[in-house]
Amino acid sequence: AVCQRCQARFSPAERIVNSNGELYHEHCFVCAQCFRPFPEGLFYEFEGRKYCEHDFQML
């Protein structure tokens, strides 16, 4: 399997985020606008991209 964002493979010891069947490295699972991790894992999706609450409100 490969990361949805960076397309790199996962190492066996690595923590992986699964979002609706899409797999991400922990450091790749970030807001599409500000590139920060999601507070408490909370995000909003718009047109296939994931956003933090602040950036989602700015759309």
Rank of each mutant, 00 (worst) to 15 (best):
Arg15Ser: 14
Leu23Phe: 10
Pro39Glu: 11
Arg36Glu: 12
Phe46Met: 06
Phe29Ile: 12
Glu14Ala: 13
His27Leu: 15
Phe29Asp: 04
Glu53Trp: 07
Leu42Ser: 10
Ala1Ile: 14
Tyr51His: 01
Phe46Arg: 05
Val2Leu: 08
Pro12Val: 09
Ala32Glu: 12
Tyr24Val: 10
Phe10Leu: 13
Leu42Asn: 12
Pro12Lys: 15
Cys34Phe: 00
Phe29Ser: 08
Val30Thr: 10
Ala13Gln: 06
Arg49Tyr: 04
Leu59Cys: 11
Glu14Gly: 11
Glu14Asn: 04
Gly41Trp: 06
Ile16Cys: 10
Arg15Ala: 07
Arg49Glu: 07
Glu53Leu: 07
Gly48His: 03
Ala32Phe: 06
Gln7Gly: 13
Ala8Thr: 12
Arg15Pro: 11
Asp55Ile: 00
Asn20Ile: 03
Glu26Ser: 11
Phe56Arg: 04
Gly21Val: 03
Gln57Asp: 05
Gly21Ile: 00
Gln57Leu: 04
Ala1Val: 10
Gln33Ala: 13
Phe10Cys: 08
His54Met: 14
Asn18Ile: 06
Arg36Asp: 09
His25Thr: 01
Glu22Ile: 08
Arg15Gly: 08
Leu59Asn: 02
His54Tyr: 10
Cys3Ile: 00
Gln7Ser: 10
Glu40Asp: 11
Arg49Val: 09
Glu26Arg: 06
Arg49Gly: 06
Glu40Asn: 06
Val2Met: 14
Gln33Phe: 15
Lys50Thr: 11
Arg49Phe: 06
Glu14Phe: 02
Ala13Ser: 08
Cys31Asn: 02
Phe38Asp: 03
Cys34Leu: 03
Cys3Lys: 00
Arg9Gly: 12
Ala13Lys: 13
Arg5Ala: 15
Asn18Ala: 06
Cys6Val: 01
Glu22Ser: 09
Gly48Tyr: 03
Val2Glu: 10
Pro39Asp: 13
Val17Gln: 07
Ala8Asp: 09
Asn20Met: 08
His27Phe: 07
Arg5Cys: 04
Asn18Asp: 10
Tyr24Met: 12
Tyr24Lys: 06
Gln33Tyr: 09
Phe38Pro: 09
Arg36Gln: 14
Phe10Asp: 00
His25Leu: 02
Gly21Ala: 11
Phe46Gln: 05
His25Ser: 00
Asn18Phe: 14
Asn20Val: 14
Cys31Leu: 01
Leu23His: 15
Glu40Gly: 08
Arg5Glu: 13
His27Pro: 06
Cys28Tyr: 04
Leu42Ile: 14
His25Ala: 00
Phe46Asn: 07
Arg15Glu: 12
Val2His: 06
Val2Tyr: 09
Phe43Glu: 03
His27Ser: 06
Cys31Trp: 00
Phe38Arg: 02
Gln33Ile: 11
Met58Cys: 13
Gln7Trp: 12
Val30Glu: 05
Cys34Ser: 00
Val30Asn: 06
Glu22Thr: 12
Glu22Asn: 13
Glu26Thr: 08
Glu40Val: 05
Glu14Thr: 06
Ser11Val: 06
Tyr24His: 08
Asp55His: 13
Arg9Trp: 11
Glu26Gln: 10
Gln57Arg: 14
Gln4Cys: 14
Tyr44Thr: 06
